[in-house]
Amino acid sequence: MQNDQVRALRYAVVWSDQHPMSWLEGAFPVSYTVDGWHLSLEESELVAEPSVPMAADEAMEALTPILSAWQASLEITEHLVVTFTYRGADPVLVDGGSVLGTDVVAATFNASVAVKRPSPPAPSWEWKDTEVTSAARELCLRPVRRGTRTVPDAAYWLLTHLKAWAGSEAKAADRLNVSRSYMKHFRTQGARSSERKVGTGMKVSTEGEKAALAKVLEELVLRLHLVESGLRAGEFLTR
């Protein structure tokens, strides 16, 4: 016999990146304890146990910010994408009853690491993933890393995104703790590139310029995540 509460949530796990990757022998299992949850990670499965039994919907809602923090921090700092797909729940058993089945729902969370690793890197649990940060990764950072979006085009998009987030380019610079000249240079390098738009006044970006622009793009996306998480953006940057 079982009641409507669960003692664990189970997720299928898939690791991916633009480069082939594998894990060294002994990399798993890995365990974490965070915000009252015990997380047991195998290469292809995550078992998440709350400190006390709760309804499945309540448990999934409580776990979502934790998986989101996992997603965001690994993709930004480790270049690793991991996908968690909800597979079901272990119900609380009453009177020694047996489990007849589990609830299976499709719910996917994305998180990104590279080549051959000894073990999964620990996430930064204090991070928060918002609509603003998620869009910056999915529409800007990830396509650039995978080579499916040009750096100048992604840079121009990111600046527009940051202006909408902060209210203006100047306010975005202030919130991200960079100089306004730093932000202006980022804007002009993206806006005037012929890889983004063909026309009068556009220029061909050199490989060195694109590499430098990609470095700034990475830094701004990182700082956006830190600020949205209520953390310090980092040392003041200028050019």
Rank of each mutant, 00 (worst) to 15 (best):
T77V: 06
V82W: 12
S68L: 10
P65M: 07
E58F: 05
E58H: 12
A59F: 12
I66V: 15
T83K: 13
L67Y: 03
E78H: 15
E45Q: 03
E49D: 04
E78R: 15
E75C: 10
T85I: 06
E78A: 13
D57R: 15
V82N: 08
I76R: 04
E61N: 08
P65Y: 04
T77K: 09
A62Y: 09
S44I: 07
V47S: 02
A55P: 01
L67P: 12
A55H: 11
E75Q: 06
L46S: 02
E49I: 11
W70Q: 10
Q71S: 15
Q71G: 14
P65H: 07
S68C: 11
I76F: 07
E43I: 00
S73Q: 04
P65I: 09
E75Y: 14
L74W: 11
A69Y: 01
L67R: 14
P50M: 00
A62Q: 15
A48M: 02
S73C: 06
T64I: 02
A69N: 02
V81W: 05
V82M: 13
A59M: 13
E43G: 00
E78P: 02
V81M: 12
V81H: 15
S68H: 15
L80S: 15
T85A: 12
L80M: 08
L67K: 03
T83V: 12
Q71D: 10
P65E: 04
V47Y: 02
S44V: 07
F84V: 03
S44L: 03
L80V: 12
V47W: 09
A59Q: 09
E49R: 10
E58C: 09
A48F: 02
V82Y: 08
L63K: 09
P65L: 01
Q71L: 04
P53I: 03
A72Q: 15
T85E: 10
E58I: 13
L74G: 14
I76N: 12
H79R: 15
F84G: 10
H79K: 06
E78G: 01
A72S: 13
E61Q: 13
P50C: 01
L67H: 08
E75A: 14
A59I: 10
P50K: 01
E43K: 09
